[in-house]
Design a protein around this nucleic acid. Structure first.
Length: 545
RNA sequence: UGGGGUGUGGCCAAGUGGUAAGGCAACGGGCUUUGAACCCGUCAUUCGCAGGUUCGAAUCCUGCCACCCCAGCCA
């Protein structure tokens, strides 16, 4: 089965290869800004850029777009590298930083000045904004627009030398203040910021803007296809203008695609930062976060994310993907990777009144279909636990579990009948007295009984405690607004409960598990055998009833 | 209102003049010692709308409508 994607970008690459536009290998880049963690939206871009290079035998740079020392830091660089790696991609020796090119970028700025294509502007940020014009009215030329080349060069050099205060002067491209494209209205190329940079330290006090930096870095690295999201479409004219007006011998094409939006999710770094800062979550890597680190901690396998990105496709259409698709990808990956076991969330004691003597040892497959997973031993005895929700005195229609007087199959064990419901003074059920049918043993059932349902159980003598954390969406709305996100914040996005598990899994090394009839769970790393293990719900099982 | 984009079923998405792929979801059924998985089946006479060209249009032309992005010394 051919699952290789065929989208307009890959079609473009094939065309460029066939008509000789690209004569050698395909080179792409993934250019994150190290001012936050990567999220599921970035995964789409990573899979696209690295995926395309893989498919066409090319290479991909991991290039940090670090031109704003005020918001960026080394910590984010490391987190991003870890996440890209985890997702399954390798940049080899192609790890670069925009700051690696500061010297060259500055030289191009001087070149622009010498060519009369850029000027130093003394307008304040407010004045600049006031003279930029609006969507429907043209802007006004800066009074500094016609400075001589010599004066501009001297001023630019003084900016670089640190003679001017932060924000006091900028270098602007001389393009067209009446352009209907706001980005072309003499955009700022360089600004003065007296701040230490995480890589270059105090070496610079002027920093290039994105529009000036990105195209130059792309050209310098020989990027054959510069892929970015739709909001940069208006910037393409500037991208091209810069490369057309400096002496550089390569001009990558910028190609835009629509970013990924997910229901119940916000992928705005600003909002994610607020969630972290205001402690609505426990950090960027909280399992509820849509960050790659968060998804990893929830137990989402990288292969599932790659599959998800593949199924989502690449187009220029705005889209909001249903969370069901991501869930589907996670389940289908875990279905054949996760061993099964039985867990009881809210234990309800069953006393098997006709059972006495030694516990019975039973065996069960770790996986219902994949025999290579092997088997484990189960215990059945006089006292066992089932989930409270698997018993009902007042069952809804089509209820298939245990009811007073009814029978149910205990998975991999025996059929039991509920004879008596024992309650305390307050009416709370404390125990169920049941009878088991010795001839109904799994695999050797001669009882002739046909219970409607099967439920999981753990024998008291085989139970060990664990903590499970069940997660829900962070936002109630399918399309939470990044400006009013607090309004739809889910105050019950995590439910912590104590549960009982078959004791054998304490010693197992697997992290991914399917707790039968409950969902896929992920054992939190960092919990050794001394303490009660914590399991995060990666995704529930699909429930069609 | 200027500019840049996008409109194919609930959500994605193929399709590039020859008579609407596929996935997710949903629904119906089968199988089942996980209400899981798996298997079968159903799900756009129609492609934002209106005209036009053509033997034939989602695909070409004209007009209109809707939605998204742009007025950071952020990226």
């Amino acid at each position: 089965m051919d699952t290789t994607p065929h989208d307009f970008i890959r079609a473009r690459i094939v065309r460029d290869l066939n008509d000789g536009t690209v004569k050698h290998e395909i080179i792409t880049r993934f250019p994150p800004e190290p001012n936050g963690f990567l999220h599921i939206g970035h995964a789409k871009s990573i899979c696209l850029n690295f995926g395309v290079a893989d498919e066409f035998g090319g290479q991909t740079y991991l290039r940090f777009d670090d031109t704003n020392p005020l918001t960026e830091s080394e910590g984010f660089v490391e987190a991003i590298k870890k996440d890209v790696n985890w997702l399954g991609y390798d940049w080899g020796d192609r790890l670069t930083f925009a700051s690696d090119y500061f010297e060259q970028i500055y030289a191009f700025a001087e070149e622009l000045v010498v060519r009369g294509c850029a000027f130093v502007c003394d307008l304040s940020a407010e004045e600049l904004q006031a003279t930029r014009g609006t969507l429907t009215t043209v802007g006004q030329n800066s009074p500094f627009r016609d400075r001589s080349i010599d004066e501009n060069l001297t001023l630019l050099q003084k900016m670089k030398a640190g003679n001017f205060a932060t924000g006091s002067r900028v270098l602007r491209a001389k393009i067209d203040m009446s352009s209907p494209n706001l980005n072309q209205r003499d955009p700022v190329l360089y600004r003065v910021i007296h701040a230490a940079h995480h890589r270059t330290g105090d070496q610079w006090c002027i920093y290039p803007m994105y529009d000036f930096t990105h195209c130059i870095c792309d050209a310098l690295e020989g990027i054959t296809h510069s892929l970015c999201t739709l909001e940069f479409e208006d910037h393409r004219a500037l991208y091209d203008w810069v490369l057309d007006n400096i002496n550089i011998n390569f001009h990558p094409p910028q190609i835009e695609f629509s970013r990924l939006n997910l229901e119940h999710t916000i992928t705005s770094k600003r909002v994610l930062r607020e969630l972290v800062d205001q402690q609505f979550v426990n950090g960027w890597d909280d399992p509820r976060m849509p960050t790659l680190a968060g998804l990893r901690n929830r137990g989402v396998p990288p292969a599932a994310i790659r599959d998800f990105c593949r199924r989502v496709g690449v187009t220029k259409q705005e889209n909001t993907i249903e969370t069901e698709l991501l869930d589907f990808c996670i389940r289908s990956d875990l279905e054949e990777k996760a061993p099964r076991c039985m867990v009881v969330r809210d234990p309800l004691l069953l006393e098997v009144t006709n059972f006495s003597g030694e516990d019975i040892r039973l065996t069960a497959n770790w996986h219902p279909k994949l025999t290579e997973f092997g088997m484990r031993e189960l215990v059945f005895g006089r006292k066992i636990y089932i989930d409270q929700t698997d018993f009902s005195e007042d069952p809804p229609p089509k209820y298939k579990r245990l009811v007073p007087g009814g029978i149910v199959r205990l998975r991999y064990a025996f059929i039991v009948r509920c004879d008596e419901v024992v309650k305390d003074d307050s009416g709370k059920i404390i125990c169920l007295k049941v009878t088991y049918f010795p001839d109904s043993r799994s695999g050797n059932d001669t009882s002739g009984l046909k219970p409607k349902g099967v439920i999981q159980f753990v024998a008291e003598n085989n139970a060990l405690p664990i903590e499970i954390r069940d997660y829900e969406h962070l936002f109630l709305s399918k399309t939470p607004s990044s400006s009013t996100w607090q309004d739809s914040l889910n105050s019950n996005s995590v439910a912590v409960s104590n549960a009982l598990v078959e004791r054998t899994i304490y010693a197992r090394s697997e992290q991914h598990w399917q707790f039968e009839r409950m969902g896929y769970y992920f054992r939190s790393p960092g919990h050794d055998s001394e303490v009660k293990p914590v399991y995060h719900r990666t995704v529930s099982l699909s429930q069609r009833w």
